[in-house]
Design a binder for these strands. Structure first.
Lengths: 149, 149
DNA sequence: GAGATGTTTTGAATCATTCTAAATGGAGAA
DNA sequence: TTCTCCATTTAGAATGATTCAAAACATCTC
């Protein structure tokens, strides 16, 4: 379960943090590595437990801090569904989410530019979107056949 | 501020509740009328306070109950944004939401069938959506120029 | 009018998240 | 090295939306 972060990912982390004047810390590195290791949209609690396998003293508050920091500097995205716990995903490509009603699992669905364009086109003039969220909810047959990206 | 429910809306309420073997109660009627009176996507708390102007003894738990009941029988929709309080809207036509970053106000955006179709088309085979949610977040110029539907 | 059933009420409980204040840990200056 | 500064981390308390539990009410049937 213990994961090491690749040189490339570490640089990415370092650079992104640097942009907002922040530093790589052991805690941030562990939390980031957890997100990269298993891209199953974990909740804060799941990240917390996984990270503790590597760094037993890590506190929950720190996990909240790290995740917020990463979102702030654009390293990861938050995924919310109804009012369930927030989940986190390191997939930065434009994509939608499909939440399987049966398993609760969240799948990434690629969102092609022309679909994004068609969504933008429904906005009346004067509406300037910074973010577009698309989420599906339903049944996914054979959950394993469509692994999370 | 006190609103009366139209004959037509009352019948609609009655029928929808009846489908799941439930009845019209004074509380449900008041809560429903509040939703119809001002379609600004109120939170539970806002519904609670508005409804109390008509029915001072009404309890918060009842408002939660009523809203859940209405959602359950398809009379209204829930609107969630990030992890903010859930909002409610009686607009049943397919539509997206635009949340104005400046005011926090939520605007309904009509969602034409062809856009819904293009969204469905991005799902790989095996994914069967029961619900599709589209929400924008950004700035809306001249908030009043685009009243909530 | 007595039971049965569904609804409402009050207040306590839960749960994710945020806050607070104290402790820690470098990085750079002397 | 030792000191100081500042960001980060920590533990635990606080918050806020929502749900739960149990008692009180209302209706409706017999």
């Amino acid at each position: 379960m213990i994961q090491n972060i690749s040189e490339h990912d570490r640089e990415n982390l370092q650079e992104s943090l640097a942009k907002s004047g922040q530093k790589v810390t052991p805690q941030r590195e562990v939390v980031f590595s957890v997100l990269l290791a298993k891209r199953d949209h974990p909740t804060v609690d799941e990240v917390f437990h996984r990270a503790r396998e590597t760094m037993p003293g890590l506190s929950l508050a720190t996990v909240y801090n790290c995740l917020q920091t990463f979102v702030g500097c654009g390293l990861i995205r938050q995924v919310n569904h109804e009012r369930e716990s927030t989940r986190y995903c390191p997939n930065l490509a434009p994509h939608a989410h499909f939440r399987d009603a049966a398993t609760g699992r969240v799948h990434d669905i690629e969102l092609p530019p022309e679909v994004i364009q068609s969504l933008r086109s429904i906005l009346p003039p004067g509406f300037d979107p910074e973010a577009i969220e698309v989420s599906f909810h339903g049944r996914a047959l054979a959950g394993d056949a469509h692994p999370t990206l």
